[in-house]
Design a protein around this nucleic acid. Structure first.
Lengths: 343, 343
DNA sequence: GTTAGCACTCAACACTAAAGAGTGCTAATA
DNA sequence: TATTAGCACTCTTTAGTGTTGAGTGCTAAC
């Protein structure tokens, strides 16, 4: 049995209808709503075939058919007709996206908001661990007699500003020296490498700056360790209440609880490694918590390493065409800003 | 008609029962569960009186009674028996609260998480606008040929690190001068005052630093404007699904949507101005969105000005005694850290 | 190969009846 | 005089029952 043109046409109609209505669709309704040129009985036979091929499922014997994950995959890869940018979208994006480059983190955070408002799904922004990033700049800024702020900038545009408390205090001149020394020694190294390499090198220089460095460096290590984490921003979480399948309180709870599992989300999203847009549908996701949802993820890179992700998450019957279109527009915008910021 | 001892005892029993079960309670069940020494008929008479006095309500004719906001207010002010710290709470707090002072923002954020986990309600942390705060420290740190990070520390321990892009670039020496000048001129001023005062004063000095200051200052102004915002952290939003009254999807949605109304939440929480714990119950809140919920808010101050709020938000039948107890423990901890951080 | 017709299935809905928890009122009681 | 037993009544909740409608697969005719 093969997927002939008619089968594809029927499948496409079912998927589009289900994405719109969330209702299982039967042969008769299908013929009424779509001009397929054949009778319900024929559709029934084709549907039975499509079910056997694994593209359709029946919630129960006398219900209509529902697309499977396999069907959505086929839809996304081959059947889907791309949507065009609407004027509304263009205007909204123009009005709400940041116009100049600021920190990557903020850039993604704002974009995520726009994304969720335009798609009406839940959106999330993720910035990566900085462990693999190279240090571009480091400076220690004394703010009072006992506290320093360490300004850390990576080559991917992430800025951190941890507070270091140096018990016993310090004198500003020494801090200045230490700061210059660290910046000089560490710039260009990946954060991961710093810890091992630093101790070696600094041991040789330590005499130059009396004992301040002995106080500052361990504190800085601990802080780097703590800083080294993903940041996750969620937007439009209550959008799921717009979808009838979440009018069941258990479904809604499970979705929202899943979003609170930050670790799962982080791992899930950060597996997307190709620059551009990735789609993972239902069971294609390797975490059981997410097997009922789909993700459309845009990965952003600067010189080869990932600097952030933007995702839309929703039911598998997501309006893929629309989401991909909007995601594409926003990605384009972000990439332009990134380019400018990196010139 | 007055509130005699028996009425109070009955009211207390009803409130406690309703906080536990969320079910309207009738006279017969009340006598079975609590040792009140009188028959259901007597209770019925007393209940009718309490309803007339505005302490009880009936969802419908043949249902039991439910406490009113007025009743909860009385309960919180007079009837409530304080709970004791459990060992579990002590251990949990010890294990999970930050042990040393870092930035105020982070301190509140972590505490909020602990708070929601211990109380099983939704918790939020709010840090204030910095407009009223005094600038303690300002430094411009060049990170490459076109970008600066402005390190801004206020007297309340808030640290900001906006990125400033100076089109056309700058030379480091000038920036150093400008930075020193700004720090010297502005330290001790409230952020609000800076804008007007700055322009005056700097106009006189402007010749000293060629045209760099003309590039940097407007950029800094814009940035200060943008930075001047509350920060809101939410924790345990899905905890509401634990409560039977939110098994109705509309209630759940309305609660979660209310939490997304950041402006409302901010205004609501930041009206608490007395150091220590404030409780506002249902209708006592001035925003219609929140009239069905209660808030227990702790306000934190340093030398008279508010530096943050920690709140628990939940149904009016909140377990006030327990929440207040836990909030008290956490507040105490935070205040100790604040003291240390400010020494 | 397609389709009309038919018997069958199942969820959803409306309706009904019974159970259960509650009330207020009245008259008896301590 | 305050308390309480008894009673009729109210209203929600729950379980059970039939009806409707959208769906199916199969068969025989076109």
């Amino acid at each position: 049995m093969e997927l002939n043109d008619r089968k594809l046409k029927i499948l496409q109609a079912i998927i589009q209808d289900y994405i719109q209505t969330a209702e299982p669709i039967g042969s008769r309704t299908l013929t009424k709503r779509y001009d397929l040129g054949v009778s319900p009985a024929t559709i029934r036979n084709e549907m039975a075939d499509l079910e056997e091929l694994g593209f359709l499922m029946q919630p129960h014997t006398s219900a209509g058919r529902v697309p499977s994950d396999k069907a959505y995959r086929l839809y996304v890869d081959a059947l889907m007709t791309k949507t065009k940018n609407t004027n509304y979208q263009k205007t909204f994006i123009k009005a709400n996206l940041l116009k100049k480059f600021v920190e990557v983190e903020r850039l993604l955070q704002y974009s995520s908001k726009v994304l969720s408002e335009l798609t009406r799904y839940t959106s999330l922004a993720l910035t990566p661990q900085i462990k693999g990033n190279k240090l571009k700049f480091l400076q220690l800024v004394p703010i009072d007699s006992e506290n320093l702020v360490a300004i850390i900038v990576t080559d991917t545009g992430v800025i951190k500003k941890p507070l270091l408390k140096i018990t016993g205090g310090f004198d500003e001149a020494s801090i200045q020296k230490v700061s210059n020394l660290l910046n000089e020694k560490l710039a260009g190294l990946s954060i991961m490498d710093i810890e091992s390499q630093l101790i070696q090198e600094l041991n040789n220089e330590i005499y130059k700056c009396n004992n301040i460095i002995e106080k500052v460096v361990p504190e800085l290590f601990q802080t780097l360790e703590r800083l080294d984490d993903f940041e996750l921003f969620l937007n439009g979480t209550t959008n799921i209440f717009n979808f009838p399948e979440f009018s069941d309180i258990f479904k809604a709870k499970s979705f929202l609880s899943m979003l609170e599992e930050k670790e799962v989300i982080k791992n899930l999203v950060s597996t997307s490694d190709n620059e551009g847009i990735t789609i993972s549908i239902g069971n294609e996701n390797c975490y059981s918590e997410v097997k009922e949802y789909s993700l459309v993820t845009a990965t952003f890179k600067i010189s080869g390493s990932s600097i952030g992700w933007l995702s839309v998450i929703g039911p598998t019957r997501m309006d893929y065409a629309n989401v991909i279109n909007i995601m594409g527009q926003i990605s384009k915008h972000i990439n332009q800003l990134l380019k400018k910021g990196n010139e």
